[in-house]
Computed example of a mutant assay.
Amino acid sequence: MVTRNPVAQAGEPAGATPGGVTERTRPGTGARLAGFVERSWRPVAVLVALFAAWWAVTAAGLIEPYLVASPGQTLEVILDKPDYFLHSTWITALETLLGFAIAVGVGVLAAVVMVASPTAEKSLYPLMLFAQVIPKIAIAPLFVVWLGFGLEPKIVVAVLMAFFPVVISMVTGLKSVDPEMLQLSATMGAKWHQTFWKIRFPASLPHLFAGLKVAVTMAVTGAVVGEYVGANEGLGYVIQQATGNLDTPTLFAGLVIISLLGVLLFVVVEWLEALVLPWHASRRTDNVTTTL
């Protein structure tokens, strides 16, 4: 049975090992709550300041109401038509999630193929880059003509917007594995799929989640662009109708809800990252220190 010396060496911090490395302990509920507050108060303060400035500018009459709606007018519009905005938000969220899911599945598969086959990478990468640089708002009307006014064209635009970040981040992650690890697995006789699942894929997850956080916000933009071009429901349709009717409060209401939807989906992906990658350095709130 191994016992720990209760008396710490002179000059060493509490919880330090004889080698001088501070032990990492699992934070309690209070510590996690304090960490959440510490991470959150700055962006919350910025948002409060922005809303205060928005309210002050509109209340002082520095900008005409038909140009910039006040926070009160925006909130009043949302409260007057809650079912309308709730249904529009649901449609846009559905298009976003479906497009994002398809982009993740196809993007990860394409990245694996490109890493496994240099020929496939040289063949597919220029095409992906070509598709990425094409303005989506320019080709969105084509999808409406081909697929109609349903969910399909909006999902396609969301996929195109979210696809490239997923592919690039996954390819980067799969290629960032330490070559010595790959040599060691090859020396031990590991097959390609074994090396992929045990070494390459876990090592690529931090890069993948970085791309997913970008992709999910791009998927929201893609869904809204598709709705703006041709739709009869969704937040993009709300903005289009409000613009045509010069209904500034409804326009601002749609923009605020779109922003909140994007932030919410970003936070969900970040929460999944913390759940899947608690061991990664980017998720740690404390650092290993040494007294040496």
Results as ranks from 00 to 15, higher is better:
Met1Val: 10
Thr3Val: 03
Ala8Thr: 06
Gln9Glu: 10
Pro13Trp: 15
Gly15Thr: 09
Ala16Phe: 08
Pro18Ile: 14
Gly20Asp: 08
Val21Ile: 11
Glu23Trp: 14
Thr25Pro: 05
Gly30Ala: 04
Gly30Arg: 04
Ala31Lys: 11
Arg32Tyr: 04
Phe36Gln: 03
Phe36Met: 07
Pro43Val: 08
Pro43Glu: 00
Val46Ser: 15
Leu47Gly: 11
Val48Phe: 11
Ala49His: 01
Ala53Gly: 09
Ala53Thr: 05
Ala60Glu: 04
Ile63Ala: 07
Pro65Val: 10
Val68Met: 12
Leu75Val: 14
Leu75His: 00
Glu76Ser: 15
Leu79Cys: 01
Lys81His: 14
Asp83Lys: 00
Tyr84Gln: 12
Leu86Glu: 08
His87Phe: 05
Thr89Leu: 12
Trp90Ser: 14
Leu94Glu: 09
Leu94Asp: 00
Ile102Asp: 08
Ala103Ser: 03
Gly105Phe: 15
Val106Ser: 10
Val106Gln: 08
Val108Ile: 13
Met114Asn: 10
Ala116Pro: 01
Ala120Ser: 08
Ala120Cys: 03
Ser123Pro: 00
Leu124Lys: 00
Pro126Thr: 08
Met128Leu: 12
Leu129Phe: 07
Ala131Met: 10
Gln132Tyr: 13
Val133Arg: 01
Ile134Thr: 11
Lys136Arg: 14
Ala140Lys: 04
Ala140Ser: 04
Leu142Ser: 14
Phe143Arg: 06
Trp146Glu: 04
Leu147Arg: 02
Leu147Val: 03
Phe149Trp: 08
Phe163Ala: 08
Phe164Ser: 03
Val171Tyr: 02
Leu174Met: 09
Val177Thr: 08
Val177Ile: 02
Gln183Lys: 13
Leu184Asn: 03
Thr187Phe: 04
Met188Lys: 02
Ala190Lys: 08
Ala190Trp: 15
His193Lys: 09
Gln194Thr: 15
Thr195Gly: 11
Thr195Ala: 13
Thr195Phe: 01
Phe196Pro: 00
Trp197Met: 03
Trp197Lys: 04
Trp197Val: 10
Phe201Thr: 11
Ala203Tyr: 12
Ala203His: 10
Ser204Gly: 07
Leu205Pro: 10
Leu205Met: 09
Gly211Lys: 07
Gly211Thr: 01
Lys213Trp: 05
Val214Arg: 00
Val216Thr: 11
Val220Cys: 05
Gly226Ser: 06
Tyr228Cys: 02
Val229Glu: 03
Ala231Gly: 03
Asn232Gly: 06
Asn232Ile: 08
Gly234Met: 09
Gly234Gln: 08
Gly236Ser: 06
Gln240Arg: 12
Gln240Met: 06
Gln241Cys: 00
Gln241Trp: 06
Leu246Phe: 09
Leu246Tyr: 13
Asp247Leu: 04
Pro249Asp: 14
Phe252Gly: 04
Phe252Leu: 07
Ile257Leu: 10
Leu261Asn: 05
Val263Ala: 05
Val263Trp: 13
Leu264Arg: 00
Leu265Val: 02
Phe266Leu: 12
Trp271Ser: 05
Glu273Lys: 15
Glu273Leu: 13
Glu273Ser: 06
Leu275Lys: 13
Trp279Lys: 14
His280Trp: 09
Ala281Leu: 10
Ser282His: 10
Thr285Leu: 15
Thr285Ser: 15
Thr291Gln: 06
